[in-house]
Computed example of a mutant assay.
Amino acid sequence: MMLTPLFPQVSPEDILFVFALEAEAGQVFGHLNTVFTGIGKVNAAITLTRAITRHRPRLIVNLGSAGSKRHGKGTVVCCNRFVQRDMDVTPLGFARYETPFSDMPVVLEHGTAISGLPLEACGTGDNFEVSHGDAPYDVVDMEAYVLALIARSENIPFVCLKYISDDAGSEAASDWAVQVHLAAEAFKRVLFQPR
């Protein structure tokens, strides 16, 4: 299986595919450089940092499941803006989502757009969000922000594709459990088949 010409400047062995869970990769990505971080920002940070040291990739591709009220289940979206949605130090006078005493913007911009896919902002947090109201993001996950932050700090190009597994609402947990296993085939259609 060959990658489509999405990344013509990078050979497949120089691409690191990053998933939270093996269920999101299925049997599709076994022949490529993959890493499974586990769930949450801390696990993602530790695992990606180690993987970068080991592999020195020229491109990091994060593939995973996410919730969205805007996009229906089964949609693949591309994210190139990221918000740390559980950062809230407003009692000390900081803006919501702002990391205190940091030069990081509230909305971190790092990532390549993939033609033909909806382009979105992803809110990352260490909780399973079921309501995000008027937040500055339309997609929610638990790892992408820190992956984008590390890729940016290491000056490595970054692609983030999310398979929408639930509507980030009251049925999100049960929807996710069913939909997460369909993610790999959706990513296969985007990455490996002519477009």
Results as ranks from 00 to 15, higher is better:
R56N: 15
D126R: 02
T112A: 14
S65E: 02
V35H: 02
N43F: 13
D103E: 15
E120Y: 12
G123E: 04
G40H: 05
I60F: 03
Y145D: 00
Q84Y: 14
L117K: 08
G38T: 12
I60V: 15
G133N: 11
F128Q: 11
R50P: 04
G67V: 07
D126V: 06
V83E: 00
N33H: 10
G64S: 02
N80Q: 15
K73W: 04
D126T: 02
V140L: 07
L92T: 10
G111W: 10
R56M: 08
K69D: 12
A113P: 10
H132E: 04
M142R: 04
A95M: 11
I46P: 02
D141C: 10
V77H: 09
R58A: 10
A44M: 09
H55D: 05
F36A: 06
R96D: 03
A51H: 03
P91Y: 10
A113Y: 08
K41G: 04
N127K: 13
R81F: 06
R58W: 06
R85P: 05
D88V: 07
G67I: 14
V89W: 09
A51K: 03
N33R: 08
A95E: 15
K41N: 14
A51G: 00
I60K: 00
R81E: 13
T47A: 13
G74N: 06
G74K: 06
D86T: 01
L119V: 14
T53M: 13
G40D: 01
G67E: 10
I114E: 00
S65Q: 02
T37G: 04
T90L: 07
N43I: 07
G38W: 03
R70M: 14
